[in-house]
Computed example of a mutant assay.
Amino acid sequence: MSIDNKKGKPNKIRRLEHWQYVMIFLVLYDIFAVNFSYFIALWVRFDARISEIPDYYLIPFLKFAPLYTVFCLCIFGVLKLYRSIWRYASYRELSRATIASVVTSLFHTCFITLMFRRMPISYYTFGMVVQFVLIVGIRFSYRFVLLQQGVISRLLRDTRVEKTGRVMLIGAGSAGQMILRDVNNGKETIDRVYCIIDDDPNKWNRYIDDVPVVGGRDDIFENVKKYDINKIYVALPNSTVSEKRDILNICKETGCELKNLPGMYQLVNGDVTVSSMRNVAIEDLLGREPIKVNLDEIFTYLQGKTILVTGGGGSIGSELCRQIAGRGPKLLIVFDVYENNAYDIEQELRTDYPGLNLEVLIGSVRDSRRIDQVFEKYRPDVVYHAAAHKHVPLMED
Rank of each mutant, 00 (worst) to 15 (best):
G8N: 15
N11Q: 15
R15H: 11
L16A: 07
L16D: 07
W19V: 08
L26Y: 14
L26P: 06
V27C: 04
D30E: 09
S37K: 05
S37F: 03
I40G: 02
F46N: 04
F46I: 00
A48Q: 10
R49H: 11
S51Q: 09
S51Y: 02
P54Q: 06
D55Q: 09
Y56C: 01
Y56R: 11
I59T: 07
P66K: 04
P66H: 07
P66C: 08
P66R: 08
L73W: 01
C74F: 15
C74V: 15
I75F: 04
V78W: 13
I85M: 11
W86H: 06
S95N: 13
R96Q: 14
I99Q: 14
I99H: 10
S101G: 15
S101I: 12
S101D: 08
V103K: 08
M115F: 14
R117M: 11
M119S: 03
Y124P: 07
V129Y: 03
V129H: 02
V130F: 12
Q131G: 14
I135G: 12
V136F: 13
G137Q: 10
I138R: 09
R139K: 08
Y142F: 12
S153Q: 15
S153I: 10
L155G: 14
L156V: 09
R160S: 14
V161Y: 01
V161P: 06
G171I: 04
S174F: 09
G176T: 04
G176V: 03
M178Q: 14
M178G: 08
I179T: 06
I179L: 15
N185P: 07
G186R: 08
T189F: 12
D191E: 14
Y194K: 12
I196C: 06
I196K: 00
D198E: 04
P201G: 00
P201F: 00
N202K: 14
G215M: 06
G215A: 02
G215E: 02
R217M: 11
R217W: 02
Y227P: 07
I229S: 04
I232T: 05
T240L: 01
T240F: 02
E243D: 11
R245Y: 00
I250R: 00
E253I: 01
C256Y: 02
C256A: 08
N260R: 02
L261M: 01
L261R: 05
G263D: 04
G263W: 01
Y265S: 13
D271I: 03
S275V: 12
R278K: 15
N279L: 11
A281V: 13
L286V: 05
N294G: 05
N294S: 07
E297R: 14
Y301G: 10
Q303D: 11
K305C: 06
V309F: 08
S315L: 13
I316E: 09
I316R: 07
G317A: 07
G317N: 10
S318F: 08
R322H: 02
G328L: 02
G328H: 09
K330N: 09
L331W: 00
I333Y: 06
F335A: 13
N341A: 14
I345Y: 00
Q347P: 00
L349E: 01
D352R: 15
P354M: 01
P354T: 01
N357F: 02
R366L: 14
S368V: 13
R369D: 15
Q373F: 12
Q373M: 13
Q373C: 13
E376V: 12
P380V: 10
V382N: 06
Y384N: 10
Y384E: 10
V392N: 03
L394A: 12
E396Y: 09
